[in-house]
Design a protein around this nucleic acid. Sequence first.
DNA 1: ATTTGTGCAAAAGCTTTGCACGCTA
DNA 2: TAGCGTGCAAAGCTTTTGCACAAAT
Lengths: 142, 142
Amino acid sequence: MSESSLAELLRARGLRLTAQRQLILQAVLDLGHATPEQVHTAVREVAAGVNITTIYRTLELLERLGLVTHTHLSHGSPTYHAAGEDQHVHLVCRECGAIDEMEPELLRPLADRLAREQGFRVDIGHVSFFGLCGRCGNGEQE
Amino acid sequence: MSESSLAELLRARGLRLTAQRQLILQAVLDLGHATPEQVHTAVREVAAGVNITTIYRTLELLERLGLVTHTHLSHGSPTYHAAGEDQHVHLVCRECGAIDEMEPELLRPLADRLAREQGFRVDIGHVSFFGLCGRCGNGEQE
DNA sequence: ATTTGTGCAAAAGCTTTGCACGCTA
DNA sequence: TAGCGTGCAAAGCTTTTGCACAAAT
């Protein structure tokens, strides 16, 4: 699906369509949420020789092209996911690390209010909440 | 203010009150938002010999003691801030990096709804929104 | 043919770990 | 004085950079 738009976006900028770029985009689409490391692992299953350096460079490129975005979940590496279509808010469990999702539209009222009152325009496709998921949160405090 | 509670919390666990721990906590309180690196710089102005290792170890300790928390703003290092009292939501400008703040209570309705409908309990003192601040967002798209 | 893209290797950051000495209690 | 805490140095990771070769157009 986005394969074709990848080709177009690249061509429009005089950049080249390569197997690596297709595979990396596909991996991000398939994985849903993934760190560069995880993308690397996934891509390697199909094309063993792809270097981690290429993962980093390509994710950055895909982000510039507007095909993927990244968020910062928990410690460490950012996680990438497809941009556009399936925007979602991440609900990250501090306890077990599980990642739930939520409709970004639920943020609309708040986002509108922030824009109006503080002039800050929230990117509602790039939000993560930390907390405790249903499995971990029962009966606990804090 | 929290100095005394630091002493108490440490004693309660058989840990020791040191100059470094006091200085590091003070730096976090003073700086508002700070990466380990920034805390290090601040502490060094008072006590030149303090090692970055101690900053890391102490921030982790202070977090365990419940005196500070950290969030992930933008790429790279986490930023620490005092826990409790002045909870706030960070509004991080993707363009200029400015950090605005917002009342966490504005998140209450959403947090309640999430707890009710998805069983996810948002830590509203540990939230960051990315987007464009008033200065950078005018007239831009994306 | 050009010129971009990739792999490899090394560098650069940031964070953690091991260890011996110093300091708190 | 007993044991925790710190500084120092080195190791570990993740991410970035430089360069020569490979590949796409």
